[in-house]
C-alpha cells in the first residue's frame, strides 16, 4: 500500500538548524539595521534645513554611548552585507572570451577595488575640502 509520509519543517525556526542557514538569515537581517540607519541619517540631514547649528546639535546628540553602539552595529551589518554581496558577484556576472572565463577572484576583486575607491572619494568630498 502507498501512504506517502510528509515530514514537517518549522516555518519559523528552520534556519536555526544549520550554521549556514543562520549566516544566511543574519545576512538578510542586515537590511533591518541598514533601513533603521537610513531613517536616522535622513533625520540628521533634515536638520540642515534648519541651519548648520541645528545639524551640529543633532550630531552632538549622536555622540551618546547608545547611539554610538547603534551605529557600530549598523557598521557591522553594512560590512557583512557588502562582503557577502561582493563575494556572490562571480556567480551572477559571467565574463567570457571564447572558452576562457574571467576568474571569480577578479569579478569579486574588482568590486572590492571599486568599494575602496568610492569610499576614498566620499571621504575626500566630505572631509578633504
Amino acid at each position: 500500500m502507498r501512504e506517502p509520509y510528509r515530514r514537517s519543517m518549522s516555518a519559523t525556526t528552520w534556519w536555526l538548524s544549520k550554521r549556514i542557514y543562520v549566516l544566511f538569515m543574519l545576512r538578510e537581517l542586515t537590511s533591518v539595521l541598514i533601513a533603521a540607519f537610513l531613517v536616522v541619517y535622513l533625520i540628521q540631514l533634515a536638520q540642515l534645513a534648519q541651519g548648520a547649528e541645528a545639524y551640529t546639535a543633532f550630531v552632538e546628540r549622536l555622540a551618546s554611548p547608545g547611539w554610538i553602539i547603534f551605529h557600530l552595529l549598523v557598521l557591522i551589518a553594512a560590512l557583512y552585507h557588502s562582503i557577502t554581496w561582493f563575494n556572490l558577484t562571480p556567480q551572477v556576472i559571467i565574463l567570457r572570451r571564447g572558452e576562457e572565463q574571467v576568474p571569480s577572484i577578479f569579478i569579486a576583486g574588482s568590486h572590492y577595488v571599486a568599494w575602496l575607491a568610492v569610499s576614498v572619494v566620499i571621504v575626500w568630498v566630505v572631509v578633504g575640502n
Binding site: 536616522v40 568590486h111 569610499s119 572631509v127
Partner: peptide, 18 residues
C-alpha cells in the same frame, strides 16, 4: 548599499559624533 553605506555610517554615525 554595498558600495556606499559603510562609509556613510562611518562618517555620519561614528566619525562626526566623535
Amino acid at each position: 548599499a554595498a558600495l556606499l553605506v559603510p562609509i556613510h555610517v562611518l562618517l555620519s554615525g561614528i566619525a562626526a559624533p566623535l
